[in-house]
Design a protein around this nucleic acid. Sequence first.
DNA 1: GTAGGGTTATTA
DNA 2: TAATAACCCTAC
Length: 448
Amino acid sequence: MEVIDQWVAEFILRRQHNPRVAPTNLISALQLGDSSDCIKLKVSSVLRDISNSLIRGTIDEGMLDLLEILEKLLLQQHSLLMESHKSAYSWTAAECTLRFMWPMFASDGLFTEALERIWTKRIGILKESGSDLVTHDLLKWETDFNKALEEHELYQRIRETNIRYTAISFLTQLLKEQWALLGSSSLESVAQRRFLKRKAVNVEGDVVDNRGDQSAVDESTRGLESDIVDVINEQRGGEDRNGNNRENANDGEGMECPENDGIDNGNVADEEHTMGAQEQEHEPSLDKGDKTVARELKDYLLEIQRHIDPSIRRGEEPNTAINHSVDDVTPQPTRVNRTGTGGQDHNEATDNVNEKGSDSKGTWSSRIRPRLPTPVPLNVSPLKKGGLAKPHVRRPKKFWTPEEVEALREGVKEYGKSWKDIKNGNPALFAERTEVDLKDKWRNLVGG
DNA sequence: GTAGGGTTATTA
DNA sequence: TAATAACCCTAC
């Protein structure tokens, strides 16, 4: 099961867009080791965290943590640090400092504290460790910030610079390059090969599908034999996937960035839709063993999702879809995740209607979009009533830490009195606070 | 989801 | 007993 662990984790990490589910939860749930594949998974996890932060628009010192962790992981892989990584770090550090330059004068104290925390301590440690993140650019920023302490004009100039935009650009570039380096996930590679294999068989058997891309079919036909060998090798031990990645990069599939997912694979999935009925009637392409593996894989995936998101109900029939046709290991968990974590109180009949969309023939067959367990509606937030369902039981009093207060101040500065956004902007720190808590604390702080 | 009034516990 | 902090309830 270890290989499947890695495949599923890798797949979820690359495809999920739901910031509610922290990739680190998934990684800790799977208890990964330090093998090459596991390090790749950890890299995926960090990239997903960075991506989620960008989606939330959060560029804070947590981002610096992630970039530092990423550097360590890449070192373990003996990979060279990319320029985009170094630049992203410099500009993110600058942006983190700029956040504390909102007062008109450097003497306010916030700026001094930020300089101490970010540049003296954090980057000081980086310098001592000989990190490649310490670049000429970074040192230039350090010099400028230190000068800005003394020179009001420079302070004002930096203060008005749009550092954030550049930081986001470099972070985005870093993500793109790193995802491309990782190539397709194992599950996607297998799904793509399986699809191309079927298509190739169709072409050879004069069941020509002119709607598809003929060159892709030719390509797949040429690479079919070696692909199958690769798949078998992967299934045996998940080793040496570099060759696959290069190959995928050549045909364009491997360059897929998860931020754009749903494009390349969406095409694959669409193509599969058009073939679905035909396959089911004339081409029972999977043997019993394949079906068992596919079913187990989906069960296991749902189990993991329950692990990281308890709102997914246990005991639903996750295999309903699979029972109709189980030859599907195409990228579906994204959809599972999006709908499965909604926490909406709706019945299954509604789910099915939605899944089929406006197409009464059900083009989005349940084979492509597995039926999802409807989350159990919570009668009470886990934060309320101290986790107890009983009424009139107060939560234990938990005093606010300085970090929480500081994050709240920052949040109000950034989002205004949008307590939900502030909470979502720092989900880890505010995990045990409700939006009302944030509002109440702010009321205390401003003396309202 | 948010605002505002109310309640409870703690401290001076 | 008043002030304060954290939490709760309810209307919008």
